[in-house]
């Protein structure tokens, strides 16, 4: 297992002009590391469906690279999306999965079959162009440049150290986030999309 924050720091130099979408407890670190927030897309809203929304964005903008950092709890809620994505074959789509083997935000309860499930194998068999699994930072760092240059859809499963939150929700530290409407406007402006909220 490796730390999500370290993983994002390793990924950041290879981001270039990609649109980046993050989910889950691990995803919060990206906000402190991203150097192009106008290309960070806030597509959360229903657990399991950020993956689907990211696919929609990739299909709408085939000349833009769309990079999703998904979480395993979310993917388990919407596993059919692997077939949907593979069926569309978006060559501009990179699907990272941050697998901490638990629901970190609700106290660390394990997800079903947390230690034995093979997400990369499922993506590969669903029809992704390529699929990888990493459980250490060094190996991830050595491969991320290649992964970002491959035609998609590419799937990358990563074992992340859980950052379990046990504080009652009202007592948790709140992080400042850009208003969703503003973030989508910024993204659309950078894409030259005139239809807006």
């Amino acid at each position: 297992m490796f730390a999500a924050e370290d993983m994002f720091r390793s990924f950041a130099p290879h981001r270039k002009n990609s649109i980046v979408i993050v989910t889950g407890t691990c995803g919060r670190h990206w906000r402190d590391i991203s150097d192009n927030e106008k290309r960070d897309a806030p597509l959360a809203g229903a657990m399991g469906q950020t993956t689907s929304a990211s696919l929609g964005l990739a299909l709408a903008q085939p000349d833009e690279k769309v990079v999703l950092f998904d979480s395993e709890g979310s993917l388990l809620m919407n596993m059919g999306i692997l077939a949907t994505i593979a069926g569309q074959k978006p060559n501009n789509f990179v699907h990272f999965l941050m697998d901490n083997e638990c629901y970190a935000t609700t106290g660390g309860q394990p997800v079903p079959n947390s230690q034995d499930i093979d997400y990369a194998g499922m993506a590969r068999e669903a029809g992704y162009t390529a699929a990888y699994s990493f459980d250490n930072l060094e190996e991830f760092t050595n491969n991320v440049e290649k992964i970002m240059s491959e035609p998609g859809p590419v799937f990358v499963a990563m074992k992340m150290i859980p950052e379990v939150e046990n504080e009652p929700i009202g007592r948790r530290q709140r992080r400042a986030v850009r208003p969703r409407v503003q973030a989508i406007r910024d993204l659309q402006e950078s894409l030259g999309v005139t239809v807006s909220i």
Partner: peptide
């Protein structure tokens, strides 16, 4: 693959113009 996906895929398509 499941109907819930259709609303989220649509959201991404709309954001993308």
């Amino acid at each position: 693959s499941r109907e819930g996906e259709t609303f989220a895929i649509s959201l991404g398509l709309i954001v993308g113009g």
